[in-house]
Amino acid sequence: MTLRESAPRHIPWSEPTALQIVHAHLGEQGPLLPVLHALQETFGYVDPLAIALVANVLNLSRADVYGVFSFYSDFRSTPPGELRVQVCRGEACQSVGGRALAEHATSSLGVDFGATTTDGSVTLDEVFCLGNCALGPSVAVNGQLRGRVGADEFDRLVHPGTSNIGFA
């Protein structure tokens, strides 16, 4: 199975579905973060239209909801690429070539951290530690952890057609 095939399936933004999601969390204490997570899991991002909708149902101000949405780096307002690639920039990974890998990642994909390639295939994110600090440099692709990732391995993971989960 390729990483691309393992990509989470997102559905296009839909207000009725979003409403259902928010309502499903109404009984919870402090539902806002679980709601934002659930919206992003379903649609791949939190559509700007969702802010008012969530505020309405949870009886919060739009500013409150937007404030929370924007505080947390996980939440995004645009659809992600097919692959979400997180490159670890933490110190343990730095000690084994993480800085070079981060540079390679941006130049190889031609985008900065936080951006998506123009063909929509890859979203590149930075992350400070993936909990794989004895096997760095570490990368996560769609949430799947990869250790000891050098430049070649990185390209194999992210470039279309070549990304394969297998370890030969």
């Binding site: 909990g131 794989n132 004895a134 096997l135 570490s138 799947q144 952890l145 990869r146 250790g147 000891r148 989960i165 370890f167």
Partner: peptide, 9 residues
Amino acid sequence: SAARSVGAD
């Protein structure tokens, strides 16, 4: 997940 990051699966 660390073991899986180097091929345990």
